[in-house]
Design a protein around this nucleic acid. Structure first.
Length: 447
RNA sequence: GGCUCUAUCGUCUAGUGGUUAGGACGAAAGCUUCUCAAGCUUUAAACCGGAGUUCGAUUCUCCGUAGAGUCACCA
């Protein structure tokens, strides 16, 4: 087999969105698993709409995901090559200069048109099989505005030819412009690459996913605290599967497992919940040091100062925080909502909140907490960890009614309806603070 | 509208000419330390319709239906 060369060819008229990532991933995987080359080509023939910032965004996103390219091209750097081919095709009689009547401002009085042989073109698509089109309906289509400004259809064909692209993997919205590209190839005497058209990634209403549906740039997912592993894994499974039930697949494994034959025909609806599930999975595998950096970065300033002043506590709450999020971005909102304040400052709360359901009198709850206090006081400082604390209190709690003991204890420590369990809380806060807060609660109950 | 493509649980999907149609997300229930999260267990949930081929179609063929994409001097 000849060396595989694939390419990802976005136009820099928008950010790198999730559908493009899937296309880039499959092209990349195919090249990697065949020891081929992967080309990144920026298709910026439209000078009006192309923007450097989008090109930067695309490259940035790809780098972040780890989809590295072996070669890089920009169509705006290749004008001379297109011009040569136009001249060549004019000489062959396949392209002609056409006089036009401009219909809109900006349109030329002269453009270059392709002499359509008006035939039926049949090509094989790796996922859909044979597809036929009668190209007559295309007419003599325009391939360039002038010798220096080729249009997309033309530039693509020249580039794929010049760069030796063997496999074109792209979205199936490009199916219908494949025939005209084949026509140009044939006029040029260029070999026909192997085509694979991927099904679209859809919005919940089944239409092509777009910005209007809240489709985010990859870089925005990064800001929201998604991990590249999660995005890659999830996106890979939209339209492809390894042929078994395996769902957690690393990039390395994907290179081995990927195959065009297992690519789906139908479109796939974007499902953010499943992405979050993947992300949660990968966050748990993320190195602790990096996790705490990510979390720290998303703390509001005030909380950040407290974390810096209490590094021991900050270190201990990392696992607790991780347990409750699926993206790092959620940390910010949770922090703003005061969800982490009680780790650093004594909570304030209503006296009634300390009561378990409605089966307790305040003074009874106070007495129970006094007992808890005594048990905690007996624990050696050096062994103030969840298991020990639990062991110390468990017997009494079971005997007195777990809820009626543990709820007030947990509430005294957190001041919240929802929080980690009281033993974890106590061990995070340390013996001294734990005692202090329970004493506060007792005082409130026994007034 | 023309052309092209597509069709299994709500979603992502596996699968076969004969299966209790499998898994995952989500949902519901239960368990696990009071709450939350996590984890574990369990449950509900699908072959678009009609013909045909066949002993037998979810699977093969055709016709519908539905949805999507595309029809530029954009890419």
């Amino acid at each position: 087999m000849t060396n595989v060369i694939t390419r990802f060819a976005p136009s820099p008229t928008g950010v790198l969105h999730i559908g493009s990532v899937r296309t880039a991933l499959y092209s990349w995987l195919y090249a990697r698993q065949n020891n081929g080359r992967f080309i990144l080509r920026i298709e910026d023939t439209d000078k009006e709409r192309s923007k450097k910032e989008f090109e930067d965004n695309i490259i940035d996103g790809l780098n972040w995901l780890g989809l590295n390219h072996d070669e890089f091209f920009r169509q705006s750097d290749r004008a001379v090559f297109y011009k040569e081919r136009i001249i060549e095709l004019i000489a062959k009689g396949a392209v002609y200069i056409s006089k036009e009547e401009p219909k809109e401002p900006g349109e030329r009085a002269e453009v270059l048109r392709f002499k359509n042989p008006n035939k039926v073109v049949t090509f094989r698509d790796e996922v859909r099989g044979d597809i036929s089109f009668d190209t007559t309906e295309l007419g003599d289509f325009v391939i360039a505005k002038d010798f220096d400004t080729p249009l997309y259809h033309f530039a693509v064909v020249i580039d794929d030819f010049d760069m030796g692209v063997t496999h074109i993997i792209r979205g199936d919205d490009a199916i219908s412009n494949t025939p005209r590209q084949i026509l140009i190839q044939e006029a040029l005497g260029a070999p026909r690459p192997i085509y694979t058209h991927l099904p679209m990634i859809l919005a919940p209403d089944k239409s092509k996913l777009s910005k209007r549906h809240g489709a985010l740039a990859v870089t925005e997912y990064r800001e929201e605290g998604y991990l590249p592993e999660a995005i890659l894994n999830f996106v890979a499974l939209m339209g492809w599967n390894p042929g078994n039930d395996q769902e957690i697949i690393s990039l390395e494994e994907m290179i081995k497992l990927f195959s065009l034959e297992k690519v789906q025909k139908g479109g796939a609806v974007w499902n953010i919940d499943k992405l979050k599930w993947f992300n949660k999975h990968y966050i748990k595998l993320f190195p602790v040091g990096k996790v705490s950096d990510e979390i720290f970065a998303r703390f509001p300033d005030a909380l950040r100062e407290k974390a810096e002043a209490n590094p021991k506590i900050f270190g201990k709450i990392i696992p607790v925080i991780v347990d409750h999020i699926s993206t790092f971005g959620e940390v910010h909102a949770l922090a703003e909502a005061g969800e982490y304040d009680y780790f650093f400052d004594d909570p304030t709360y209503q006296r009634e909140s300390l009561l378990w359901k409605d089966e307790n009198e305040p003074h009874v709850a106070g007495q129970k907490l006094q007992k808890v206090l005594a048990l905690i006081d007996d624990i050696d400082d050096a062994f103030f960890v969840p298991e020990t604390i639990k062991t110390a209190i468990w017997g009494y709690a079971t005997e007195a009614g777990r809820g009626s003991v543990l709820w007030p204890m947990r509430y005294a420590l957190s001041g919240r309806d929802k929080s980690p369990d009281p033993f974890t809380l106590a061990s995070i806060l340390g013996k001294e603070t734990t005692i202090h807060r329970i004493e506060g609660a007792i005082k409130l109950l026994l007034i």
